[in-house]
Simulated assay, not measured.
Amino acid sequence: MSATLTTGLIAPHGGSLVDLMVTEGQREAVRASADRRVECSDRNACDVELLVVGGFSPLRGFMHQEDYDAVVATNRTTSGLLFGLPIVFDTDDESIAIGDRLLLTYHGQELAVFTVESKWEPDKAREAQGCYGTTSIEHPAVRMISGERGRFYLGGQLQGLELPRRVFPCKTPAEVRATLPEGQSVVAFQCRNPIHRAHYELFTRALDAGNVSAQGVVLVHPTCGPTQDDDIAGAVRFQTYERLAAEVDNPRIRWAYLPYSMHMAGPREALQHMIIRKNYGCTHFIIGRDMAGCKSSLTGEDFYGPYQAQDFARDNATELGMETVPSLNLVYTEEEGYVTAEHAEARGLHVKKLSGTQFRQMLRGGEEIPEWFAFRSVVEVLRAAA
């Protein structure tokens, strides 16, 4: 089912918030109608969950080939609706045929029944170039689609049975919307790593941006699906967010977790994140420098320009009915605490720096971490997990 929302919150993408979960009374009959069981990958399970709860509204299932081709080529579906990246189910199973009803499972759970309505062999080089701007396997998503994803893609409708049980308890878009103030700005902050002082200063100061309402709030909405191999484990990140939320206890901050698998797709990913956050009720989106960017593991060179994602998101924001909030370049100074880098340079202030590598070395060595850099509660969790 789906419902057009008439509250004082932003309308979902496409106008209605999709809910593909069947009723309790229908569940057994829907489950029994499946022809065979297919186990989801971690990435598949994230996509299934976001489709079922409406995070990918207005999609009602995995994209057919026509929409896949259109999104790869133009970041729009065949109906002209903006979409950053294609949403498809992959398999190596040649025997799966159009018309099959697949019971999608994940770690022993029965998530959904998927009616296969299209099946094709994608041109993965064309997908890589269109979505990520490169065919180099040094890009993590190119490596993912070429090495992890199966030979065939499947499209078709979903009927949800159960949501994945996760370390991160992921609220649905409807549940998040119920916590948001009507008629006010809701600023989304996306991250995939623990939040340190500079991040906190960044998203709380975003509430003072000129295009944010006086009673607006920020939704801190970390992704909790598969990400880069060297990122901190999800269970540890979850603990850092929970401890930090309790420590700051800020009434203008809402916290929720997003079951999304990162592609590190730069501009395309920024658009995808905006669309998803619109479905969760956000009106504004903080776009950081080099958002969702990545580097070649051979050359160390960036795949995207530092402001490419910001520019692309800004160019599409009006059509989405959203606004972007550029990420401030904040630095910590001995004299004035956190200020913009431009202010520090103009005033000749003394900037203090601590790299991520130094921070990890200090954690492992048991050294005292300066409180200007990291929250004590976050450090305690990271140190316990080291």
Rank of each mutant, 00 (worst) to 15 (best):
140 P>C: 01
87 I>L: 10
11 A>Y: 03
249 D>S: 13
5 L>A: 01
142 V>D: 04
345 E>S: 15
189 F>H: 06
94 E>D: 15
50 L>T: 02
377 S>E: 11
193 N>W: 07
98 I>L: 03
365 G>T: 00
192 R>D: 06
162 E>F: 11
33 S>T: 06
206 A>E: 10
283 T>L: 08
92 D>Y: 06
171 K>E: 15
33 S>A: 13
257 Y>L: 14
369 I>K: 10
329 N>K: 15
209 A>C: 09
102 L>C: 05
168 F>D: 15
138 E>V: 00
375 F>D: 09
131 C>F: 07
185 S>K: 08
161 L>F: 11
198 A>E: 09
381 V>Y: 02
101 R>V: 06
97 A>G: 09
277 R>Q: 02
9 L>A: 00
345 E>H: 14
75 N>L: 04
230 D>H: 13
271 L>E: 04
115 T>Y: 09
32 A>E: 14
11 A>E: 12
138 E>W: 05
161 L>E: 07
93 D>L: 13
279 N>H: 11
202 L>F: 03
148 E>M: 13
129 Q>H: 10
346 A>R: 14
358 Q>T: 11
372 W>E: 04
209 A>F: 10
201 E>K: 04
14 G>S: 02
337 G>F: 03
31 R>G: 05
130 G>M: 02
38 V>S: 01
171 K>R: 15
108 G>C: 05
190 Q>C: 07
367 E>L: 11
56 F>Q: 09
143 R>Q: 11
29 A>R: 14
198 A>C: 11
31 R>Q: 12
300 G>F: 11
315 D>V: 05
3 A>W: 12
136 S>Q: 04
172 T>C: 03
203 F>Q: 07
340 T>G: 00
290 D>S: 08
321 G>A: 01
71 V>S: 07
303 F>E: 09
22 V>R: 01
253 I>R: 06
92 D>F: 04
65 Q>N: 08
354 L>K: 10
349 L>K: 04
306 P>W: 01
154 L>W: 03
161 L>K: 10
319 E>V: 08
347 R>G: 10
377 S>R: 02
309 A>N: 02
313 A>L: 10
126 R>T: 12
226 P>N: 02
243 R>Y: 13
131 C>V: 12
29 A>Q: 14
376 R>W: 06
118 S>F: 00
128 A>T: 06
254 R>H: 15
18 V>Q: 13
13 H>M: 08
185 S>C: 08
137 I>C: 14
56 F>P: 05
246 A>P: 08
243 R>Q: 15
81 L>F: 09
5 L>R: 07
169 P>G: 03
79 S>V: 07
250 N>F: 03
193 N>H: 12
202 L>K: 00
84 G>Q: 06
284 H>M: 02
364 R>I: 08
45 A>H: 01
129 Q>F: 11
246 A>T: 14
105 T>G: 07
15 G>Y: 03
350 H>Q: 09
82 L>W: 05
302 D>R: 14
348 G>Q: 07
175 E>P: 11
294 C>N: 13
159 Q>K: 12
342 E>H: 11
138 E>F: 09
65 Q>Y: 09
172 T>Q: 03
192 R>K: 05
16 S>R: 13
6 T>P: 03
